[in-house]
Amino acid sequence: MELTSRESWAVIHGLVLGALFLLAFAGALAGLWSFRPGLITAKGIQERVLRLKVGFGAMAVIAWGTVITGTWIVYPWYRAKLDQCAGLELPSAACSPRNFLLANVNGQTADWHHFGMEWKEHIAWASPLLATSAFLLVLYYGPRIIARPWLRTAIIVLLVGAFGAAAIAGVFGAFINKVAPIS
């Protein structure tokens, strides 16, 4: 039971950082959703704000880590100029995942690249931008958010946007790595 260096980076990018971000979303949303008057004491506000700041900050850092490892470490292996794909059932040392998908040598796989990968690689970068602004809003306003329902909703929209972008990227990443794994 072992992983190659490339498989390990794919795991760090998708299963560790990406999954951590998606899982953290539920906690962040719950914490912000219930941050409203009448549900929490003054002492509770201070504790909740600290938790929101740490949680949103961690999510922003994780989002940046996910897209940077994905783009600068894993993606070059995906798109390497290796096109000896005839007769293969999976990508190999002579056939990169991108060229394997485009060659349609194991079913109609080209759309996984043309639509799936093309959307994933771009939309993913929206996630850290939105997560960073959501974090900065929580950091700047802190406890004041509780008295401003509209501001809380705006931060939730940013958070949901960051999650949505990461979810699209994550789902397509998982499917593409199933059809044409990086190894």
């Binding site: 004491t41 003054a42 506000i45 931008l129 960073t132 602004s133 900065l136 700047y140």
Partner: peptide
Amino acid sequence: QSPELDALNLADKPDGPGAAMMISAGFGV
């Protein structure tokens, strides 16, 4: 709208930086 905040004695903050965070996120995307 939140009497719980009174105990914390928080000063108001201008909304300019908050607006900057919202617009820049959309601009980046």
